[in-house]
Each structure stands twice: as C-alpha cells, then as structure tokens.
Design a protein around this nucleic acid. Structure first.
Lengths: 257, 257
DNA sequence: AACTATCGGATCGAATAATGATCCATGGAT
DNA sequence: ATCCATGGATCATTATTCGATCCGATAGTT
C-alpha cells in the first residue's frame, strides 16, 4: 500500500457510528504505528480532509469533503437523481431498495432505502457487492462489455451460501437470462433467506454503470410481489437513466446472438 | 509538502467548472512530473477518491467522496442547518449571502446564495477569506480565543485595496467594536465597491466557528438596507447556532473589559 | 501523595518508497 | 504520411517515510 493509500484508508474509519477518533485508538485500529498515524493525520489535516477538535485533540472529517462531494454531484448527479426514485420504489413496495455503482473497487452500494417492516433486509452503504452472488451484480454483468465479464468469470467465485452460483456455466446462464429479460433475480446467493430483483442503470455508452435492486426476506415472497418488484425496479432504472442523460440509452449487451 | 499532501492537492483541481482532467493537463497545472502525477492519481483511484473514465482515460472525483461528505454532515450538520437559513436571508434581502467556517487553512467559504440582481457580489465556495480584510473575518476574530487573535495580528496584513485595514491599532478597534455589537461591517477592505455585514456563528464553547455575511455593491447601500442586513445576519447566526446545538451558546470574547 | 497507565506529540537514524528522466505505443491533427 | 501530444511503463537515484523511543500531561488507582 502506498503512503497515499494508507493516509486515505484512515478516512474510511470515520463513519456515522464513529465519526471521531483519538490518535492512539485510530493507530491501533488501522494497525499503523502511532507516529505514522499521526504524520498521516497531520497531512490530511493540512489538506482539510480531517480536522482536529482543539479541546479534545480528537480528529473528525474536515470541511473540504463537502466541497468535493458537491463537485462530484454537480458533474455527475447520480445520487441527486436516483435517491428520489429509490424513495418512490421503497414506498411502493415497502421493501429495502439499494443503488450501487461500479467503480475501481467493484460494485459499491451508494444509497439504501430500508423497508419499514421489522423483518427487513439491511444493506450498508459503502459495501462492495460480489458480482456473481447478488442480483445487482448479475444485472450489472449482463450489460457490461464482454472483456470485463470474461475477465471476471476467469476468477474462481467465492461461495457465500449453499445457493451461491459458483459453476461458470450456471453463472453464464444467469447472465444470459438477465440480459434477455432486462432484469436479474437473486436467490439467497449472498445471504441465506434473502431474495432480490435488480435492473442495470445504463450509461450513455449503453453499458451498465451500476444497478438498482429490491431485496426482501424469502418468507415474504409470492408470485405477485416478485412481479411487482420486477416492474418497479425496471421502471426505476429507466427513469434514472433518462433523467441522468435526458434520454434512455439503448442497451448494449455482451452476449446477444 | 508531503506525498500525501501532494496527492490531495490534486483533488482541488477538480471543480464545478473543470470536473475532469487528463493526466498531462493536470500534471502541468499542478507542476508535478507526469510520472508522479500518474502515481498519485492511481493511488487516489485505488482509494476511490477519483475515478478514471475507461474510454476517455480522463479522471474525475470518485464515489467515495459522497460517503465521506455524508458522514461529516451527519456528525456535524452545519450545511444542512445553515443553507435553509441562508436562503431565507437571501430571499429577504436579495443580496449575496455567504457562510464560512474556520479550519486549519483559514476561514473557508462553505456556501453561497447569490442575489438575483444583475449587479451583485459573487463569492466562490472554497475561497479562503483574509481575516483582517473581510467582515466575515472581523466577526470571527471578535469571538475567537485571545491567543489566536494575537498570533494573527502579529503577521503583517496584506492590503487588498486602499481601504484594507492594515494598521494594527485600527484592526484592533474594528475587532473590539464587532465584539461589543455582535456583528461587523466590511468597507471595501477586500474588493473595491463591495460592502458587507457579518455575524459570527458560535460553537458550544462560545467561540466562533465561522461566520455568515451579506455582501452588496456600495452603490446600493443606504442606512435602511444596512440596518436591515444587520438584523438579518444576527438573526440568522443565532438561528443556526441554536439549531446546531439545541440552544444558543453564550458568547465568549477575547477582549471584553 | 505517590504510582501507574494512557494519552497526544516530538525525535532521528535506518529503511523504504517516491521521484523524474527516458522510453514506448497509440491516436488525432495537419 | 508525418508530426506531435497523449497516457502509460521502467528503473537507478534520492528524498521521504518509518517506527523504536522518549517526553510531558492527564487521569485513575492505591
């Protein structure tokens, strides 16, 4: 890990639950030397990414992250556009709805609207979704460039449950089916007892840039809810793409005959 | 500048106006070697702070800045709280209203609501305001701990216009007056033809953590507008502190008799 | 009051990672 | 067809980071 990556990795310890850190605490948690941690924090503080509370000497995220987020959202307003749509879907289905975007580190959960039910599926923002084991991942792969899909399929997929698709042939079938139908279904592939449907969000090039998914406990699934969710998720996906680009991109698929 | 600071300084080139950069361009602008710039960008990309558009090879801010901003705002919702108040003030006065926060790098403009008038004052978010030459700065100093004020006054202040207060005695007077009245007035100290009034935003410790200001062209100033602005800015400042902390902090001033 | 543990921070020689001149392949522009 | 700028890769040199150690302050504990 480069020095820069170490420094930035410290930022990821600041969360909604633990938004403030003392030096020693953070050093232990990050498994860096205390002196190293301090140097990194000072560098981050000089750059405004973190701030130090003068009285308590504790560190928290700094004001400049707000500016960065604003620039990103102005340039590429996925969240602004998608969150209201997610809310609608969550309201219409009363199940957990989540949005993910594909970046360098994989398919990252950007936003979650949770169901109001007590028995609901919880997803953490920032979580990285395994492409082969989630409905979101399959939907994404089904509308991704062939080389990306191929290179991903070369890796041996990890099994998270007894239901995770690990045989390349089965995975391939799932992707082909999703490409043909325009949506994917998850069957307890990532966590037991959780099923979901997902649709890709297409970029201007016609390839998926992320996906939107509805997840529910298996116990609640019926034919009717599934159909409803498929409709909801496809409608939402189209709405988001359309609002992002002013038009609905025409899909490009890696494996269409 | 440390390696980490160099890397992060690259982030500041991504703005609303120039949200995407090519490698060579950015290297020239930042005055880093191209190879160095690339290494830094790769490190930033691995951390999710920037992303590279696969087709154009250009870089833009990444998805993880959104997460960081959300954590910061959840923990310390200055913007969430203040922006609606700024909007009210902007609506009531139809002049440019801006919010700033004091951090490691100085008094930074966090948010701006511009007047709808053609002849208006424009302020850039992210701009660093000189403490001695702006109403915001004087308001901040008037409610800052004595050592901070003293150490700042030791530096020789830069003159931005003929009207900038540069004599320590005059500056001191301005700060004392602002401390006594609870607001400050700017008289073309930073830019010719611009006047403003500002009030501090107090933290729980009773010291200022930033300030809010209304700026207008000198040509529009009358006794009546000034009075109105003073009222508006003080009311807004109190409202923001109160909403942030559930109560209005009692001010602590460095130089009260 | 003395002791102890832990905190944030500072120091400095050794170890490592950053640097940048140089090269390469690609793709527009003239 | 040629030229130039682009993004990216290489590697010996060098500057920076690393971390064991020390320090003073604070807060419990005995």
């Amino acid at each position: 890990m480069s020095t820069v990556e170490k420094a930035i990795s410290l930022l990821n310890f600041f969360t909604e639950d633990e938004p403030e850190w003392g030096l020693s605490d953070l050093a232990r948690q990050a498994r860096f030397d205390k002196a190293t941690t301090r140097r990194l924090l000072v560098a981050l503080a000089n750059s405004g990414l973190v701030e130090q509370h003068a009285a308590t000497r504790r560190y928290q995220l700094g004001a400049s992250v707000l500016r960065l987020a604003r620039v990103r959202e102005t340039h590429f307003p996925l969240l602004q556009v998608a969150v209201p749509v997610l809310r609608e879907v969550a309201a219409a289905t009363d199940e957990t709805v989540h949005l993910s975007e594909f970046g360098a580190r994989g398919l990252v959960t950007l936003h979650v609207e949770e169901s109001s039910k007590a028995n609901r599926v919880s997803v953490a923002t920032g979580q990285i979704l395994p492409l082969h084991a989630t409905a979101s991942g399959i939907a994404f792969l089904a509308f991704s460039p062939a080389p990306l899909v191929k290179s991903y399929l070369r890796k041996t997929p990890a099994a998270f449950t007894r239901h995770t698709l690990v045989q390349p042939a089965r995975l391939d079938d799932a992707i082909t089916a999703a490409a043909a139908r325009g949506y994917s279904q998850g069957e307890q592939g990532f966590e037991d007892g959780v099923v979901s449907v997902a649709a890709p969000i297409l970029g201007l090039d016609g390839y998926a840039l992320g996906s939107i998914a509805i997840a529910m406990p298996l116990s609640r699934r019926t034919k009717a809810t599934t159909d409803h969710h498929v409709q909801a998720v496809r409608g939402a996906s189209e709405k988001i793409s359309a609002r992002l680009f002013g038009e609905q991109p025409s899909p490009r698929q890696p494996r269409v005959a």
